[in-house]
Design a protein around this nucleic acid. Structure first.
Ligand SMILES: [Mn+2]
Ligand SMILES: [Mn+2]
Ligand SMILES: [Zn+2]
Ligand SMILES: [Zn+2]
Lengths: 137, 137
DNA sequence: CCCTACGTTGGACAAGGTCTAAGTCAAGGC
DNA sequence: GCCTTGACTTAGACCTTGTCCAACGTAGGG
């Protein structure tokens, strides 16, 4: 994830200990942590890091396109470092576990012009729901 | 919407003024109100109805399958009385307006077995995002 | 090594939603 | 019709998630 730090450097970010730790916590590809989970893990490495800074950093990473927000019913927003390869999600209705999935076809083009109501449509999210093997047992 | 009241009757619900008013407020087919919007409209007809009762009633209607929850990033959950005909949603990123849409194809079958990770997949929600003509102007 | 603009902090604040204890009332039985 | 009773409603406390702010700290250019 020093790739990320390098890109941030290039965009004029100051490399603070806090930002480094948040970036470390988010390294990995199939992770979908909540802000408070990120904060908890960051605290292990940098005990004095504040909730506000975690929220700030996550928000900045999202607006730079380095992180995706994944929001699911009635639960805290999750942050997805797998922002480079587009994908969708499969949720367990019982335990909330999320998996990355890659359905076939292009859902964006599945919305005909007559169903766009003058909107400029830019994106589509597919959220599959079900029960994971762990919860089914 | 007295159809709804009748179905509730049959399921052993007491027909209180509060439930009647919530059912009335929700009548219609392309409505996506938040709980507080439902409460505001209900209050016009029944000034003393409480927020808790609105939340209780909405929750009950959802678990009976009479209402759908539509949750969108960082905004209040919306409640959708169009639970009978399956459909998907198109959201405006600026103002939050929701439209019902009917994309072509079957998104459920677009998820290959190899991408199901042992889950029993029961449902899929498509959420299109964009800018509505009103906000684009 | 200094300076300063950018970053961080803790805590107040806000919105959305849940829970509870006490009071109210729908509706079945007489 | 009137009682009775358990289901329903109520106000407000409380919780979780997330935002904002003024004071303080520090990365990094000069
Ligand atoms: Mn993902
Ligand atoms: Mn709808
Ligand atoms: Zn599960
Ligand atoms: Zn709009």
């Amino acid at each position: 994830m020093s790739d990320l730090l390098k890109r941030l450097r290039e965009r004029g970010w100051r490399l603070t200990a806090q930002r480094r730790v948040v970036a470390e916590v988010l390294s990995g590809d199939h992770i979908h942590l909540t802000a408070d989970e990120v904060h908890a893990r960051a605290t292990e490495r940098l005990p004095e890091i504040s909730r506000a800074t975690v929220y700030n950093t996550l928000g900045e990473l999202v607006s730079l396109g380095e992180l995706l927000e994944v929001s699911t019913d009635h639960r805290a927003t999750r942050y997805d470092p797998n922002a480079r390869r587009p994908h969708h999600h499969l949720l367990c209705d019982r335990c909330g576990t999320i998996r990355d999935v890659h359905p076939t076809g292009d859902a964006l083009s599945a919305l005909p012009e007559s169903e766009r109501f003058g909107y400029t449509v830019s994106d589509v999210a597919l959220t599959y729901r079900g029960i994971c093997p762990n919860c089914a047992a």
